[in-house]
Amino acid sequence: MKVTPALLVIGALLTFWASMAIMVLLPAATMHPAPSSTWRPWSSEEEAGNTLYVQNGCSYCHSRYIRTNDWDLGAERLAEPGDYVAQEPSILGTERTGPDLSQAGGEHPDDWHLAHFTNPRYTRPQSLMPAWKFLGESDIRLLTAYVQAQGGRDADTRISRQQRWRTPAQEAYARGPDKNIEWLHDQVPHGWLAMPNPYPPLPADLARGEKVYQDQCAGCHGPIGDGQGLAAPYLNPVPLNFTLLRRHLTDGRYLGGMLYYQIMNGITGTAMPYFKRDLESEKIWDVSNYVAVYFVGYTDATMEPRGIGAAYEPAWTNPYTPPQTQPAAASQPAAAPARTEPR
């Protein structure tokens, strides 16, 4: 076959435009997905947030769809074509240097986002996201509105739950540190409150707990657990000062289960997120022991009640005695029964 100029020009154009018809025109003619069950239109604020999302290249690190093999943020719902109706542009993204955002709405309250956008390392010390402080607070609020809209009606449900618990959490904080902790304890199922940490805080466990704490928790609660992390000035209510727990042990001795539950589940309405996706069970027990030993100066590890000890558990005697608490100190037993035998 001899390639003449006519064959070259006409053939090249025909092949290309035929492909275009199949790959663009046919989808354009056939793809008219109905809005999905969670879809809702964006408000003008959320639209403005989308514009900022596009302008600042957020889509180079964040995707906006969940696949069947995803486990992280948003993995409770697979993406549907009807999730993106009327959004223009609706950039789905090709990289996940940060988490998928398709269901990010309502995962965190607005004050967490303000701290996180100002400098992501304030809330998540390991984040690689740029600090967006230079955009100014009004743009950060628009971006926050956009993130909070991700997930549509499902996000709205999460937001309303955040808002439902925000007011009581703030009121409790306003009543003073002791009342605040009492309120926080009241939100934990009783079974967890009266549960000791089942694992001993051996040096290796504490070293692991320290790593988890400094990587995941120090941004808000501070490197020394006093609640004075870099994010704290942005948050309302502020992060807990762990040293206060010393006078708020359940039954005068328990705090392990309470810490575990709050770390696992987060405290909706406050900036405290859940860590059940980031941390496996042992890591949560380790960081609970770290917080207890280093910041409270006491741990209930391996105390009664407990079941059969895990097979690998080494023998360990809990040397800590519950701190004297006032004013109810007199009614507390002088010392917890120290265990000498692993069970």
């Binding site: 663009v24 354009a28 109706v85 959004q87 223009e88 950039i91 789905l92």
Partner: peptide
Amino acid sequence: STGAVAGILDTVILWF
């Protein structure tokens, strides 16, 4: 103004 069409179709055109 946007250089995009609305909805999921935009992704098809973009990656074409």
